[in-house]
């Protein structure tokens, strides 16, 4: 009888007594634990102890991307978490995900790219260093297919899954938050890195981290009225949210067009572009 009373009053006392502010477990939990069989004691934790254990648990090893994302996310995309990369058009968002794919595939890892906007250019990807043989390219027609494809690929054991929702209007809108939560859970259970590139926030609370690509600034050579040449794009990546990390950090992103775009060079990736 006494033990049942201790059980029923334990939660109330745990929050009322001063012991809750110390690192020791509340006396009620300790009492109850002492009455349990020996092999069961280690399985019983208070909520506070569970939180402490969770905070002390080591972070999963990150999945490097060799981009400015690595600096913001302390080493790369965290495995088992959903990272959302948002940005308007010409913000460097697509270049960043292409670089992530290039880093992964060139290191011998398999990667999957779900391309809702059908924007992937294999020739350009080769120039960026992507090993096309290791890349699975899926082109869904709308957001629902995108989410299901991502879940299938995560279950298939792909260590890196990248979703690009393209530019607005995104077919299917933002989707249901429960779907994104389910996807984040799938990434967690399979310990895969999941990067979602979107023009605006879509995944809600499912995202462990949110990085925003600021509006990019084109870099031109020459001056008007003379000939001009696009020689790069300058932008910034800002960490807006990251679980267990400090947010609002910014890294510069500087991108150069592929060699084929520079005046006078000729490669088949974009075509023989000669000044007319």
């Amino acid at each position: 009888m006494a033990s049942s009373q201790a059980l029923t009053t334990a939660p109330q006392r745990a929050f009322e007594t001063p012991e809750t502010t110390t690192s020791r477990p509340p006396a009620t939990i300790g009492t109850f634990r002492s009455r349990l069989p020996h092999h069961l004691r280690s399985h019983l934790n208070s909520g506070r102890e569970w939180m402490q254990q969770r905070a002390a648990a080591p972070l999963p090893s990150p999945f490097p991307t060799a981009t400015a994302l690595d600096q913001l996310l302390v080493g790369g995309l965290p495995q088992g978490q959903l990272i959302e990369l948002i940005g308007r058009r010409s913000s460097g968002r697509f270049s960043t995900i292409l670089s992530s794919l290039a880093t992964a595939t060139s290191a011998g890892e398999a990667a999957a790219f779900i391309d809702l906007g059908d924007a992937f250019d294999p020739q350009l990807a080769v120039a960026a260093g992507v090993d096309l043989e290791r890349l699975l390219w899926a082109r869904p027609g709308h957001l629902k297919q995108t989410l299901i494809s991502a879940e299938v690929l995560l279950a298939g054991g792909f260590p890196l899954v990248v979703i690009d929702l393209g530019n607005p209007p995104v077919p299917g809108g933002r989707g249901v938050e429960a779907s994104w939560l389910r996807l984040a859970k799938a990434a967690q259970s399979h310990q895969a890195a999941l990067l979602v590139s979107s023009p605006y926030r879509v995944s809600g609370t499912a995202a462990a981290g949110v990085v925003k690509a600021d509006h990019g600034r084109a870099l031109w050579s020459g001056s008007t009225p003379g000939p001009r040449l696009l020689v790069g794009l300058s932008s910034h990546l800002t960490l807006q949210k990251m679980r267990r990390q400090q947010g609002n950090r910014t890294e510069a992103l500087r991108l150069q067009p592929p060699a084929a775009l520079i005046y006078g060079t000729t490669t088949p990736s974009i075509g023989n572009r000669s000044r007319s």
Binding site: G92, F94, L98, A102, T103, G129, G232, R254, Q256, P258
Partner: peptide
């Protein structure tokens, strides 16, 4: 990373 400016086709 090569810092390549990609083009969204």
């Amino acid at each position: 990373g090569r810092g390549l400016l990609a083009i969204r086709t």
